[in-house]
Design a protein around this nucleic acid. Structure first.
Length: 267
DNA sequence: AAAATGGGCAACCGCATTAGA
DNA sequence: ATCTAATGCGGTTGCCCATTT
């Protein structure tokens, strides 16, 4: 494909948007809509590329954008959806009205990832590397799950598990710092993290037990609600309509249960 | 008080996809 | 069927501010 010339080469402005630019963009979109992002900056009198305008509008200026901190419910939803959708931020964003994919992505990388998988490198760690990674889009629905929390306190070991292997683990939210040993989930020291209260009813033995496919099926869901004792994984998949693996909503059903999914889709 | 380090967020980059000629 | 322009999307970067040393 032919790449659009970058803003710099075209003599267009880059970097942070000024309030004046915001006003111009808002006024223009409100009056004319944004049928053609490419032509918009020229017509609106902005020294920005269309891409930049679109991004600014979608991520910041849109009237339906919800600003402010994410609620516990939103964070919980993001984690659940991430388990189901992987890094498909736009898909996740559609389930969270008022939140943008970019915002969700940032929250994931800065907060939620640590809760789900504390062993992952922090943003700062990655920053140090400054290494550009080749894009791996449409990444498979890979999740991390603790294999054996009985090992030493460096935490559970993680393995990548494709949905074909096991869609069952939502409890990978378990952190592995000292608080875990008392059955609590690390919340980074912040009071009231969604994990803590959800897991308060889980005792130490839960984390010490070896994980198996059957355990997963009979353990707790991410929300802390018990999943009823169930048939084999294969039977469960059939019940959930896993006739083909290309069904995104299928894994959502697996993770959340049909009721939750229905609830989400109504948002 | 100054420097170093870390964390959060907005914005950019570049590839993928889609629509239309 | 092919090519091109436009848009969408996810990964990454850079800046700014807060905290720590």
């Amino acid at each position: 494909m032919v790449r659009a010339p970058c803003c710099e080469k075209m003599g267009l402005k880059k970097g942070s948007w000024t309030p004046e630019e915001d006003q111009i963009l808002i006024a223009y979109v409100q009056q004319h809509g944004h049928g053609n992002w490419r032509a918009l900056p020229k017509q609106a009198g902005l020294l920005r590329c269309g891409k930049s305008c679109r991004l600014r509008w979608v991520n910041y200026l849109r009237p339906d954008i919800k600003r402010g901190n994410f609620t516990k419910e939103e964070e919980e939803t993001i984690i659940r959806l991430h388990e189901a959708y992987g890094n498909r931020w736009s898909a996740i964003a559609t389930k969270l009205p008022g939140r943008t994919d970019n915002e969700i992505k940032n929250v994931w990388h800065t907060h939620l990832k640590k809760l789900v998988s504390p062993s992952m490198p922090s943003t700062a760690d990655k920053k140090k590397k400054k290494k550009k990674k080749k894009k791996t889009s449409s990444e498979p629905l890979t999740t991390t799950m603790p294999l054996d929390t009985g090992s030493e306190n460096t935490g559970c070991r993680f393995m990548s598990v494709s949905p074909e292997q096991s869609p069952c683990d939502f409890s990978s939210c378990g952190a592995t710092d000292s608080s875990t040993e008392s059955g609590e989930i690390s919340d980074g020291g912040k009071e009231g993290s969604f994990c803590s209260d959800k897991f308060s009813g889980i005792d130490e033995s839960f984390w010490l037990e070896e994980w198996s496919m059957d355990d997963c099926a009979a353990s707790v869901s991410f929300t802390g609600l018990p999943i009823p004792p169930s048939p084999s994984i294969g039977e469960q998949l059939d019940l959930l309509g896993a006739s083909d693996s290309g069904d995104d909503d299928f894994w959502l059903r697996v993770f959340m249960g049909a009721g939750d999914l229905q609830e989400l889709s109504q948002i």
